[in-house]
Each structure stands twice: as structure tokens, then as C-alpha cells.
């Protein structure tokens, strides 16, 4: 699985679930939650991010609540993958369950806002097309890649229970 390339949206360390899916929006559906995603840090992120773009974070991405809307919001906005040196464990699981790639990449800090990226999760590489650099990232284990490829846990279970 590889892609055509998309722009990087770069954020810092410890991006928490209250920033990804603010508590005040959680009574609402995913459209409303997604429109506020990361708004406290980048007010126009939700409006300007394009399908196929990437979110790049510092260590500990997705720390906090188990609310899976944090991952679902990024997915709803069409984000191709989140790339960070480390993830909160619950967020990591939630992301894969929505078919959103979470790539552990120690070199995420080399990526700048707007860089064009493309990823290969099976080979474990992130390509920075703007800088003509390639960074290694952890591969996603095959049993989890099956879930991602199916589009998430629900479609995966749907296909495998019938």
C-alpha cells in the first residue's frame, strides 16, 4: 500500500484527545467533532486539510482519553496516516480500528509543514518528496495491517464473520 503523496500538517508533542476531539463536541456526530479537530492549535486545519494529507506529531501522539472520535475525526477528514515517534497505546489501537494508519517514525521531527509525503507501511518507510529523503518507520504487524486494509475493525469483522 502506497499513495500518491499528500501534504504534511506538523504538530508538536503530546497532542491529546481533548485537542483532537474536544469534550464540548462529543455529544454531536463525527461531522461536528471533526470540524473542531486540532482547532485549538491550528484554527483552519479542519477546513484546509485535504484527503490524502498527513498529520505529523511529536512523541506521545493521542495521549488522554479512550474516546475513539480522536482517531475517527482524522479519518473523517481524509487523513492518510498519522506519523509520530510514539503514540498513546489506546489511540494507536483506535486509529487502526478505523483504518487510519499510525506510523511510528523516530524521524518524524525531520518533516516540515507542507512537505509532500508518501508512505509504505508494509516496507516501513516514509518518503519526503519535498526534501528527497526517506525515513524508516516501524512496519504495522500483518494481523493489524489486515484490519487497516479492510477499512477498519468493523468492515474486517463483517467480512470475516460471513
Amino acid at each position: 500500500m502506497s499513495n500518491e503523496g499528500g501534504s504534511a500538517w506538523v504538530f508538536g508533542e503530546n497532542i491529546d484527545t481533548d485537542q483532537l476531539a474536544p469534550g464540548g463536541t462529543l455529544k454531536s456526530g463525527i461531522e461536528v467533532i471533526a470540524s473542531h479537530c486540532l482547532g485549538a492549535l491550528s484554527p483552519d486545519f479542519a477546513q484546509r486539510v485535504r484527503p490524502g494529507d498527513f498529520v505529523v506529531g511529536g512523541r506521545n501522539f493521542g495521549i488522554g482519553s479512550s474516546r475513539e472520535q480522536a482517531a475517527q475525526a482524522l479519518c473523517h477528514l481524509g487523513v492518510e496516516a498519522v506519523i509520530a515517534p510514539s503514540f498513546s497505546g489506546i489511540f494507536y489501537r483506535n486509529a487502526l480500528n478505523f483504518g487510519l494508519l499510525a506510523l511510528v517514525c523516530p524521524y518524524a521531527g525531520s518533516i516540515s509543514q507542507g512537505d509532500q509525503l508518501s508512505v509504505n507501511p508494509e516496507k516501513g518507510s516514509v518518503q519526503n518528496l519535498t526534501r528527497d529523503e526517506t525515513y524508516s518507520c516501524d512496519t504495522v504487524p500483518s494481523h493489524l495491517m489486515e484490519i487497516v486494509s479492510a477499512g477498519g475493525l468493523v468492515p474486517y469483522l463483517e467480512a470475516n464473520r460471513r
Binding site: 488522554g64 482519553s65 479512550s66 474516546r67 475513539e68 482517531a71 489506546i90 489501537r93 483506535n94 480500528n97 478505523f98 477498519g152 475493525l153 468493523v154 469483522l157
Partner: peptide, 27 residues
Amino acid sequence: VGGDSHSTTGGAFGCYMFGIGSTDMAG
């Protein structure tokens, strides 16, 4: 398993308890 991040609390009772999201819980 608990559908909340503070599910770690249950570990005080010598059981393995951890938090998961709702889709994981549905599984």
C-alpha cells in the same frame, strides 16, 4: 477491558485491566 482510559484503576485489584475504544469494545 474497560471502555475508558482510566480503566487502569482496576489493576489495583491484581487483575489485568486496560482501556480500549468503542470499536475495540464492539469487537
